[in-house]
Design a protein around this nucleic acid. Structure first.
Lengths: 149, 149
DNA sequence: CCTGAATATGAATTCAAT
DNA sequence: ATTGAATTCATATTCAGG
């Protein structure tokens, strides 16, 4: 139940500006989800939504910047990277031809997420990540593998 | 007064997690700004801060994703681009040597901000933006010029 | 664990004053 | 235009029950 409701909430808040939980609650009711404001409050926390203010002075719930960034990363990384491996303290990221630069830039902009990164170097088909230690390399490789489709 | 207070608020919320306006109010008092919760509420709206939730379940006020993205764009674009011009429906963005790809990628990721963009093409020192119409090109050039230092 | 009802807490707004 | 005091409104939490 909760799963589906969360999904619906995400859809609802991106379609129209919703400025209060009560309103969201109504939309949910219309979609067949009978819940109280208390539940909506919890859902909003769990989904890490934020009540932001849009230019003028209009409040609306929306997904956080972090989440958008993360989603974007997952999507693009998955579409450009074909394989991850590592040896010693170097992680090798194999990409579809010509995609390595883009993938590498993407990886770089996402810095702050990764720890132990010394630097990156990109060719056409592959980029490498030089890590502080071998164990850092292993951990990073594991993490990145999750994004490969 | 308000200007300085806004600045202080931005500094305060990034130093420590602040989960309610009352707490922000106290920090402000410590910094010599005597205001009420009502004013803090207004400041927060004017600064477009959001109350977000960080991984665990900890609320904190922070600057919105949009703002961060915008700041980042201004900073990098200003540091990589040297000159903007246009002719017909093409905008030419001259960059410091070797920077064009990065600047162009940055421009692309900021899509949604620009209207009338057909596509981009990057060399080493320059990238071009093909626009729908000549007037689109003029408008974009004007906008982008503001970011050149 | 998930939820609702009631409640407590937090935040926005109104109204008046400057 | 900016603010504070009081108020209303919105949201988080508590507590109980499934």
């Amino acid at each position: 139940m909760k799963q589906a409701r969360h999904q619906m909430i995400l859809e609802l808040i991106e379609k129209q500006p919703i400025d209060k939980q009560e309103k969201l609650q109504e939309y949910l009711k219309a979609a067949g989800f009978l819940v109280t404001q208390a539940t909506v409050s919890r859902d909003i926390r769990e989904l890490q939504l934020v009540k932001s203010v849009d230019g003028n002075g209009v409040y609306r719930y929306s997904v956080s910047g972090r989440q958008e960034k993360q989603k974007r990363f997952e999507m693009i990384f998955g579409e450009t990277v074909s394989e991850i491996d590592y040896s010693g303290n170097i992680v090798m990221v194999k990409c579809f031809t010509g995609m390595a630069n883009a993938a590498c830039e993407l990886f770089d902009t996402e810095n702050g997420e990764w720890s132990g990164v010394v630097g990156t170097l990109s060719g056409d088909n592959t980029f490498i990540v030089l890590m502080r230690t071998e164990s850092d390399a292993g951990l990073l490789a594991e993490k990145l593998k999750k994004y490969v489709l």
